[in-house]
């Protein structure tokens, strides 16, 4: 099981803050995971429409789209950060 987390407007668009799911086989990278998420319905397609804007973190570490996700416990998707 992998925990997926969504924050800020990504969360608003998907309609959920987190979910625990069994990822289908063959998904090796963050970009491939996004491609699969987009097939899960109009909310997800809309949430990830601006794919180049969305940032990802694997196990709470900032990660690039081509980074591998094998063995990840927690993968988060969010807009560029705006704290401070």
């Amino acid at each position: 099981m992998t925990r997926l987390l969504y924050f800020a407007w990504v969360k608003e668009k998907t309609g959920i803050a987190s979910e625990d799911i069994e990822l289908p086989g063959g998904i090796a990278t963050v970009a491939e995971l996004i491609a699969w998420l987009k097939t899960r319905g109009p909310e997800f397609e809309n949430a990830f429409a601006q794919e180049e804007t969305i940032r990802a973190a694997v196990d709470q570490t900032h990660t690039k789209a081509d980074a591998p996700i094998a063995g990840a416990k927690e993968i988060a998707f969010f807009p560029p950060v705006t704290g401070g």
Binding site: F7, V81, T82, G83, G84
Partner: peptide
């Protein structure tokens, strides 16, 4: 610290 915090700490303002 402020420059890095603003671009890497996962906070979002609404």
């Amino acid at each position: 610290l402020m420059d890095y915090l603003k671009t890497s700490a996962p906070f979002w303002k609404r």
